[in-house]
Design a binder for these strands. Structure first.
Lengths: 148, 148
DNA sequence: GTAAAATCTCAAGTTAACTTGAGGTCAATG
DNA sequence: CATTGACCTCAAGTTAACTTGAGATTTTAC
């Protein structure tokens, strides 16, 4: 019943995704997912909401904010259900961001000992103190990763 | 005057570190830094507060929370001003965490395309959907990195 | 010696990402 | 067909990490 085509209930989706019903409500108000209503005003979802949610969770783990995710989702087709290729494009996009971030962390790691442990008290020229500039400059396009 | 031994004012420290005075107050209430007061009840800092703040900022960039930073700071000597070796120990500690996190992100990156872009709609066995477990298991000691 | 700049305290506001609760309706079950 | 569980809405609370503001005192500078 719940498993019928494009007819998923909040409870089912929540359980399946390991999130709370309130989170689904929340995502909907944020415009990250959509639903239609049955006669009784209850939310029903199409199956692709599952994919959307898993993407949201994956992206969050990478450090991408909901706002950025929403922006990226804007590239997805509105009418038809997104296909493999649509999702693959998103993935490619985030992969790039992830590469950048990994490189950043590696740099940080490499300089951590050299800097925190070194004798330099002057932060103006400390390599670890101001690395955000580099990160900021690189991602000059749509900022997906937040430089917190 | 402000540059005299162990006599830094809030304004000076804030400017030098590129943070707001209110942030210094805040860090102090959080127990991350210390100060003594002059006759007029104004805060004065020893020079090592600069190091502390730069470490805080570096750690935050790696994704470490203030609470965790505080815990780690607990290992620093209380009476004497921390020396090179003390800081180096912290660094070493974080470097390990950083390595873990980098490995995690690389794993994520490698599975991003394969997973988001693949045909798997079932999140139960999706490699990207549940990677947090592994991270959680690895850092079984004092949890420095938050698995958000 | 007085006005401007810097500080101080304490309370309250801010953003992200949710969660909790109250009060009320809808649906599935014995 | 009545009860229990699932949903609904809307307002308010929560945590992290700060920021803003008000009202008062200190310092600094001319």
């Amino acid at each position: 019943m719940n498993l019928e085509e494009a007819n998923l209930s909040v409870g089912y989706v929540a359980k399946r995704c390991g999130i709370k019903v309130s989170t689904l409500h929340f995502y909907e108000t944020k415009g990250l997912i959509r639903s239609w209503r049955n006669q009784g005003n209850q939310r029903r979802y199409k199956r692709d909401v599952l994919r959307r949610i898993s993407v949201i969770k994956a992206a969050q783990k990478i450090g991408i904010t909901l706002d950025s995710i929403k922006q990226t989702f804007a590239d997805l087709p509105n009418e038809r259900t997104p296909c493999k290729g649509d999702w693959a494009n998103l993935a490619k996009n985030w992969q790039k961001q992830l590469d950048t971030r990994i490189a950043y962390m590696q740099k940080l790691r490499d300089s951590v000992t050299g800097c925190i442990g070194c004798g330099c008290l002057s932060m103006e020229n400390c390599p670890i103190y101001n690395p955000e500039d580099e990160l900021a400059n690189e991602g000059s396009g749509a900022v997906l990763l937040d430089r917190k």
